[in-house]
């Protein structure tokens, strides 16, 4: 698993079945029905967070909090190093006759640096992992998937019963079911 999640990229997919929905309840019903039938849902694209969907399609807990902790630790260490270098090693200064070694006056800098590195680190890693960082070409499955349309994306392959998937999606209220083959979409 690299820095950029290749699993999230659609470029190398052989064949995808897309269920287009316009209602989150229908989407959730369809998703749980599909999962119930043992279908692996590649991903679901929604313009806003749909609560409970992550549990249904089995999204694993993100490691972002570990990243946050490590970034925070980095920020904390950087602050310690910086203060030590500037204030103790390179150019000791007498400010209000306060001691040079660790004092409460170091705390705000450590705190700020920790928070800064955590916030920026989390932000960057979040965008990189989601392929949303500036410069990464976005891959849209539907023109309105960032507006008011939701898309269930299933990769077909050996042992996947395509007609059953299409039936379930239709019966659960998909407005449209599409097939995506080599980047070309056709309605089925």
């Amino acid at each position: 698993m690299g820095l950029i999640d290749k699993n999230l990229s659609l470029r190398n997919r052989r064949k995808l079945i897309l269920g287009i929905f316009d209602d989150e309840d229908k989407l959730m019903d369809a998703s749980s029905a599909l999962v119930h039938e043992g279908v692996h849902i590649q991903d679901v694209y929604t313009p806003y967070p749909v609560h409970g969907l992550d549990r249904i399609i089995g999204v694993k807990r993100s490691n972002l909090s570990v990243v946050a902790f490590l970034c925070g630790l980095t920020g904390f260490s950087l602050a310690c190093l910086m203060i030590w270098y500037m204030y103790v090693y390179d150019w000791p200064m007498n400010i209000g006759n306060k001691p040079e070694r660790f004092t409460p006056s170091w705390i705000p800098i450590m705190f700020e640096s920790t928070v800064l590195c955590t916030a920026y680190g989390m932000g960057f890693f979040f965008f990189i992992r989601n392929r949303l960082l500036h410069g990464i070409q976005p891959e849209l499955l539907h023109d309105r998937q960032t507006d008011d349309t939701m898309v269930i994306c299933i990769e077909t392959g050996d042992g996947v019963n395509e007609s059953k998937i299409v039936d379930i999606m239709r019966s659960k209220g998909a407005t449209e079911v599409r097939e995506r083959n080599g980047g070309v979409q056709t309605t089925i």
């Binding site: 209000g96 006759n97 306060k98 409460p104 006056s105 705390i107 705000p108």
Partner: peptide, 12 residues
Amino acid sequence: WISQYLLIWYAH
């Protein structure tokens, strides 16, 4: 808590 302490510690 640390804000109160720190300002008083620093202001001396």
